[in-house]
Simulated assay, not measured.
Amino acid sequence: MPCPDLYCVIGNPVAHSRSPWIHARFAELTGQVLTYERLLAPQDGFAAALAALAARGGRGCNVTVPFKHQAAQCAHSASARVQLAGAANTLVLQPDGQIHADNTDGLGLVADIVQGAGLALAGRDLLLVGAGGAAAGVLAPLLLQQPRRLLVTNRTLARAQALVARHAELAALQKVELFAMDTQGLDGDFDLVINATASSLAGAGVPVPPGLLRAGGLGYDMMYGAGAQDFLDWAQAQGGQARDGLGMLVQQAAAAFALWRGVQPPAAQVLQELRAAMAAGQA
């Protein structure tokens, strides 16, 4: 029998990732034959890790922090989403050695917010916290939902401004008020606050002050697990709903799986199973 096709997730850190469990379940439910691993790359070793995967016959990979910008730069071709974001979370390793980059983060985030949390984004006021690869990957799909306004905030204002500038044309086409602000002096109130920073992974607490989330609004941390709890508590303390990024993880994985295999897996079923398995300590 032929060897199973090889895929992986590359990141630093990566031991926490549930992606191997998700993709194994996708494969089982869709009749695909593959293996999926975690690959820890040194902070300065993404290109070498990608080359090693290709040398083993790897067919593709997911990319997590802090390598999403590097993933886009390593590709020979890229989707429109990647070209706009300057960041990629999904790579397709083709038999001729070419690498194609895509970004399914925003697709996963929007699907989990709109379908999972039941929050329609049209006409809403949104706050996106962070301006790194994670934020870059979701900004365009959020704009396509046509919120009323979208504020990008970051400790380094120049990074937020650069991200906003890249998306200014799309925002104008969607008639969305898009602007940037640093986290110092941040004010206003929002229907949705998205934490796209690595604060939850780093145990650095909540990256924004209280008072920003409207009562009944949604605080969404793109991370999941114990590290996200501070942000979820922050949202609930303001009378808001709280949701971690596990649904986004499954939804973006489903989009990547479909890109690799040409088959759409049942994301909602796998998310339900994953939450149950994590609660039981089995995933």
Rank of each mutant, 00 (worst) to 15 (best):
V138E: 03
G130A: 11
G106I: 02
V138H: 04
N103Y: 15
L121M: 05
A136K: 13
N103L: 12
D96A: 11
Q115Y: 03
D105F: 05
L127Q: 03
L121H: 08
G132H: 01
Q98A: 14
D102L: 09
D125W: 12
L91D: 06
D105G: 00
Q115I: 08
I99K: 11
L128D: 02
Q98G: 15
L139M: 10
T90H: 07
G116N: 05
L107E: 07
G133Y: 07
G97P: 14
G116I: 06
D102V: 09
G97M: 13
A140H: 03
G123E: 12
Q145R: 04
L91W: 08
G133H: 09
A122Y: 14
D102M: 13
Q94P: 01
G108E: 01
G137L: 00
G97S: 06
D96I: 07
G118Y: 02
G116L: 05
V138R: 00
L143E: 08
P141L: 01
L139H: 10
I99A: 15
A134T: 11
G106R: 00
G130N: 12
A101V: 12
A80K: 07
G97T: 10
L142W: 04
A87V: 09
L91N: 08
P95M: 10
D102I: 02
A87T: 00
N103T: 15
Q98E: 14
R124K: 15
H100Y: 14
G137I: 06
D125C: 02
V114W: 03
Q145W: 00
A87D: 14
L143S: 09
L127S: 03
P141K: 10
Q98K: 14
L119Q: 02
Q98Y: 00
L107I: 10
A136S: 14
G108Y: 05
G132C: 10
A140I: 01
R81W: 07
V138C: 10
A136Y: 08
L107F: 08
V129R: 07
V82P: 07
I113H: 07
G97K: 05
L144E: 15
N103E: 06
A101L: 13
A134Q: 03
G123R: 06
P95I: 11
A120G: 08
G106S: 03
L109E: 04
D125P: 05
A131F: 00
I99Q: 14
S79I: 04
L143Q: 09
H100Q: 14
L109P: 00
T104P: 13
A111D: 15
V138D: 06
L139Q: 04
Q145L: 06
L143P: 11
L107M: 03
G97W: 02
V110I: 04
R124T: 15
D105W: 03
A120C: 12
A111Y: 13
G123D: 11
G116M: 03
V138A: 13
A87I: 02
V114R: 03
D105Y: 02
V92W: 09
L127K: 03
A88E: 03
G130R: 10
L119F: 02
G133E: 11
T90I: 06
P95R: 09
R81Q: 05
P95E: 04
L91G: 14
V92P: 08
L119D: 04
L93C: 08
V114Y: 02
G137P: 00
L109F: 09
Q83F: 04
L93S: 10
L128S: 01
A85T: 02
I113Q: 05
G133M: 01
G137M: 12
L121T: 10
D96Y: 07
D112T: 07
